[in-house]
Design a protein around this nucleic acid. Structure first.
Lengths: 191, 191
DNA sequence: GTCTATAAGATGATAGAC
DNA sequence: GTCTATCATCTTATAGAC
């Protein structure tokens, strides 16, 4: 897909995406300017428009980068033996980044909220962040023999997202920790 | 507190806050310009600065307006006889506005996320939105004789917030509905 | 006390240089 | 193909008119 002959070999495009991902996570979609993003990526200011036609197109790349992270995570979790172990490992993933979550929120949740404020184009893209997560969880619950696997999956992700939000609001990692632990016990009770 | 002799009798200030609350809910904190807010409030554009020193001060008024809504809601719920009825009525409150939540998210949750992107000043104000809600819920759970009332309260609000987020992401009121109903059954099981 | 014309600065985007 | 000087626009904020 990526033709190294026509792509910049020095990866400026990738650096722009990386710094956009970072700045959008810290400051939201609206606040970071293209100049700030370019500076953080060590790319000349006006140069951004060679790699992206509009700012929205750069944001689109940020969304895809986050979606790819989700895919990677699920791929890693699939190596675990039992569905219960996979689900618990998923929940614990947020715990692993508890400090980050308490400081800036869940990268998926906050991005979704901000995208919803935008026009039709980007607004619906947030589905791409959560659908794989929920579908994957549903598969695990079903493999565990759960009747309403879909609702269980939504319960899991809802709670994690809500806990991440409150954890950030109160800058308190314990809120996230206690909810994740409760979810682990709940998953065990279903196994 | 409000001196009608020095305040504009035609309520322009209140109209500005009202339209700011609306626009911030729809488009976030950053996107709406003072001109848009003024137009929506039927107030001359540059006139905003007579009522508010800066845009942040207007946003501050938006936060206080939302916080007042929370206080009002809790006051209404207090009229119910049992703590379980009060808690269930709280959860059902989000259900009442399910269409709004599915379209734009929870007014409290989305505002909190956006405030977190701002500087120190406004960033921490989101506590004022959720602390009363959680403290009040904790009181109800304790009155029900629950041991860890604090964690129960956090479970309740976390789940509602997460469900509101996913409900908005997928524009699906059913996600919110099924989670609220599950919470109602849970509260009943504790009573 | 109430409001408006205007400034000062920044932002996304483009035309065209190298 | 890669990059930069510059534009048109918009946004917050203010000085000062009524």
């Amino acid at each position: 897909m990526t033709d190294s002959a026509t792509e910049a070999a020095d990866g400026k495009r990738d650096r722009l995406i990386a710094s956009a991902v970072e700045l959008v996570y810290r400051d939201g979609v609206e606040r970071p300017t293209l100049v700030q993003i370019a500076e953080a990526a060590d790319v000349p200011p006006g140069n951004v428009y060679y790699y992206f036609r509009t700012k929205d197109e750069l944001i689109q790349a940020v969304i895809e980068s986050r979606a790819a992270q989700v895919t990677d995570l699920l791929g890693t979790l699939d190596r675990r033996r039992t569905p219960a172990a996979r689900l618990k490992a998923l929940a614990r993933n947020w715990l692993e980044f508890r400090d980050m979550v308490a400081a800036q929120g869940c990268p998926l949740g906050t991005l979704s909220v901000e995208l919803n404020d935008h026009g039709e184009d980007l607004g619906r893209q947030s589905e791409k962040l959560f659908a794989p997560l929920i579908d994957w969880s549903e598969d695990q619950f079903r493999e565990m023999g759960c009747r309403n696997a879909r609702e269980q999956a939504l319960t899991l992700i809802s709670t994690v997202q809500g806990a991440a939000l409150l954890s950030c609001v109160f800058s308190d990692t314990e809120i996230l920790a206690s909810q994740v632990h409760r979810l682990e016990r709940w998953i065990d009770s279903l196994a």
